[in-house]
Simulated scan of single mutants.
Amino acid sequence: MERDWQDLPPYRAVLAVDTRNFSALDSEAQREVNSGIREVLRSALDVIGLSTEWRKHDFGQHTGDGYVGGLVPTCLPGLIGSFPAALSEALRQWKPRGNVADPVQLRVSVHVGPLDETGIGDPMVHTHRLLDENSLRRVLDRADPQITNVAVVISDRVYEDVFRSGVRTGQTVAGHYREQIAKVKAFERPAWIHVPGLDWRLVDPELFEPPVPAEPAEQPSPKSAEKPSMTFSQQGDGTLFQGYKVTAHVTGGRDD
């Protein structure tokens, strides 16, 4: 009997990174950061024992300000466990030429799902939506780039698959991740954020709240002067006199 269904594409872990404030760099600095990202990724993945897997990664491509690639899903415990701290250290050790004056900060997202060799599909879109999540941006916007150079967001699916499995994840445990609802355009999904070295119990929850614009001070409305009203009075002989009645408000006077 002929099948009327298709095989599901193989599951792949999707790793994506991009550079904070990349557009603020000049063209020469952008080229240097663009080429340096792969060097930093390769170094960090080598440290945690994923150099072989990275050499064979799927649909690798530069995104201008970052890079994206697919790995076998068995790498996930390393990607969300040991990799963030290793990436932070590799980025700190990277020595760009004089074109890049300020420390580089990277946003990282990790997701998993069925993807063919092209990398085109919903899991890839999901990965990039996580990368654009505003809470992740606010973390790095408030951070000192000399101290905090990496912020990571993972999908709820990755979090559940890895931490509920009970496998070892290096020095990073579930408590190093904080749940957040990722909202980007029409996309709204649970996600988990991690900053290497940060204890979320010490963090003000307002860090994840969008800044509230200050309301303009209410201006007192000027008192409108009362218009004089016209009056008529009649004398005993029947003559009418026309006049004006004016009401005046006086403050701060003195009694003489």
Rank of each mutant, 00 (worst) to 15 (best):
P114H: 13
P114L: 09
L115N: 14
I120Q: 10
D122P: 00
P123W: 05
V125Y: 03
T127R: 01
H128R: 02
L130G: 12
L130C: 10
L131K: 06
D132W: 06
E133P: 00
L136A: 11
R137I: 01
R137K: 12
V139K: 06
V139D: 13
D141H: 07
Q146N: 14
Q146E: 15
Q146L: 14
I147A: 07
N149K: 14
V150M: 08
A151P: 09
V152A: 03
V152Y: 03
I154C: 10
D156S: 15
V162Q: 10
V162T: 12
R164Y: 04
V167K: 04
V167L: 02
T169W: 01
T172C: 10
G175D: 13
E179F: 13
A182C: 15
K183V: 15
K183L: 11
K183C: 09
E188Q: 12
E188H: 02
R189N: 09
R189G: 00
A191M: 09
A191H: 07
H194M: 12
V195Y: 10
W200M: 12
W200L: 13
R201A: 15
D204Y: 00
P205E: 12
E206I: 03
P210W: 06
P210L: 07
P216N: 02
A217R: 13
A217H: 05
E218S: 07
Q219A: 15
P220Q: 12
K223D: 09
A225H: 02
K227H: 09
K227G: 10
P228K: 11
M230H: 12
T231L: 14
F232I: 15
D237P: 03
G238C: 04
T239F: 01
L240F: 14
L240A: 04
L240G: 00
Y244I: 10
Y244N: 12
K245A: 06
K245M: 10
T247G: 12
T251H: 14
